[in-house]
Design a protein around this nucleic acid. Sequence first.
DNA 1: CAGATATTGTTCTAACTAGAACCATATGTC
DNA 2: GACATATGGTTCTAGTTAGAACAATATCTG
Lengths: 147, 147
Amino acid sequence: MEAKEFLPVVRELARCYQAFECYSSRHVRSLGLTPSQFDIIATLGNTEGMTFKQLGEMTLITKGTLTGVVDRLVARQLVKRVASPMDGRSQIVQLTDDGVAMFERTFPAAINHLGKALDGMTSTELDKTHTVLRNLTRIFKRETKAG
Amino acid sequence: MEAKEFLPVVRELARCYQAFECYSSRHVRSLGLTPSQFDIIATLGNTEGMTFKQLGEMTLITKGTLTGVVDRLVARQLVKRVASPMDGRSQIVQLTDDGVAMFERTFPAAINHLGKALDGMTSTELDKTHTVLRNLTRIFKRETKAG
DNA sequence: CAGATATTGTTCTAACTAGAACCATATGTC
DNA sequence: GACATATGGTTCTAGTTAGAACAATATCTG
């Protein structure tokens, strides 16, 4: 194997994600939601709701974890569970009225906060970044499937 | 604000990190360590040990969390705490003999596993990826400092 | 239709996580 | 040297995390 320097790259990936998480999480928490809770509220916004499975795929939260996070949002009356008419095993998660209000209060603010950081990037830079990330994601996904 | 598409970019960053984490974590767990534990073992390898502060900066684990992770490694006799001769507040964390053995058993294996995924990338691609990530990291770090 | 297999969501466990409050020790200022 | 302030680790709390085992429902195959 050629001595390619991939270790610094994955360390930078971790640092990058961490830096984003730190920047974003601080703001989200100040709005009264954990990052996971915000992810769910944001994903459910402007939809008729979706199943746990769909919600897990969108938010990258595994199903065992998702149950707990949704439980807490149900306790705060921000979302509700509805039995799926299509599939007896399935639950549909929907924003309540309070949840919609929370979405409308937090989502634009979060977008705006993110924009403050990324507005310095040109569209070209954003595109390049997107492409590079997509490529790296694909590599890990492929290898994970393989073994 | 111009309608730049930064939302897909940060979602891709999350997906990318997640894909890496999944690929890497599965392997590390099969070696008998959690990802955080492996991070610490890997960071301490080939050093004389370092303080909690340094260790936290290298691994991106916050200090409150670090205490617990190190506690578990101490319980497994893979690392030890040594009082710093320089600073009465400071603890130095060092690999034990068992810890060194664990490092030698797991670190090359992890590098090799990672290499299997990334060997398909050319050095040029790796460089570009590194540059793009470093740029994005810098943006979030700067903004986090600012507020 | 019946039995085998797969899928959806829940439960359980062990661990990690950030953040805040706290204690002990250092450092800066007078 | 005394006091204010900063720093290194620990403790505590609420929450997230993955993974495995599980129950209920679907689907597939004969």
